[in-house]
Design a binder for these strands. Structure first.
Lengths: 152, 152
DNA sequence: TTAAAACCTCGACCTAACTTGAGGTAAAGT
DNA sequence: ACTTTACCTCAAGTTAGGTCGAGGTTTTAA
């Protein structure tokens, strides 16, 4: 809820909501959570810069693969707060997401393959079953910093 | 909550919970939701067959990639109710999951690649941006029956 | 210039997926 | 035999991720 005139902030809540296929209330909610930012016009109505569209796209895509808003926020925190993120900002972010996504992709491939490969174990040899893995192996697998999914 | 003596049902809630790394309350909850099944001993305590371990492994793995319990249940509904699932039952289930997982993997790869590839669009050409895709493209993509993720 | 549509805030409500706690029973160890 | 640990049911509480509605203001379109 920053005040002051930002020339680039021209999109209304309704416009953004419609273009992104979400409800206005979700925009309020994301703002409250610090995931997006808005400026106000003379009449106290929210106005967004275009980069909000990308942020929301990322939020939606990430949620679809089970990444929480808290994790998304952590990632977004690496974007500049005072200016609109540029090419390089998104590029840096992208690098980190790629690692996380690669891990998740690997996990899903394991799940997929395990469902087939595991057949025949009859749940009798749980030690050998790649699916039966009580603790999150992803946490141990990565060598680089794991940023997302830090749930206890 | 079936009654009667099933020779194979030998695991207690505590044992299952410990082996799976979840709480007893979660087992109660899954049972209530119809995701797992138990038998009772003389003293009304739950006893599980070993296949519950596989079910829980699948539940946990699926949840980790953002699949809801309702969806998992739909999938499990295709397993036999009256007998312990065998090789072929799990194989059939596996085939369906593979399609779903392949789609989700494809989606995540798209997200990953888009984060990089999209850089430079500056959120100005949203029509061309593969990330900016308000409606679930997965729904349209698949030719076969899509079972999971039927959220409106 | 006025009526409708869009926006504002704020508090209550909603679903999913569980957890916690109270009050009581069963099983296991010593 | 007894005491601790595990288990039972059922109701209520919790967190995430929003939605809904009331009561009031601003923008837009006729």
């Amino acid at each position: 809820m920053a005040t002051g005139q930002h020339e680039e902030a021209k999109l209304s809540v309704g416009q953004v909501a419609k273009r992104c296929g979400i409800k206005v209330s979700a925009l309020h909610f994301y703002e409250e959570k610090g995931l997006i930012r808005s400026w106000r016009n003379q009449g106290n109505q929210r106005r967004y810069k275009r980069d909000v569209l990308r942020r929301i796209s990322v939020i939606k895509a990430a949620q679809k693969v089970g990444i929480t808003l808290a994790n998304i926020q952590e990632m977004f925190n690496q974007l500049p707060d005072q200016r609109t993120p540029d090419k390089d900002d998104w590029a840096r972010l992208s690098t980190q997401w790629q690692q996380e996504l690669n891990q998740r992709i690997a996990y899903m491939e394991k799940l997929r393959d395990s469902l087939t490969g595991c057949i025949g174990c009859g749940c009798l040899s749980m030690k050998n079953c790649p699916l039966y893995n009580p603790d999150d192996t992803l946490a141990q697998e990565g060598t680089g910093p794991v940023i997302l999914d830090r749930r206890p």
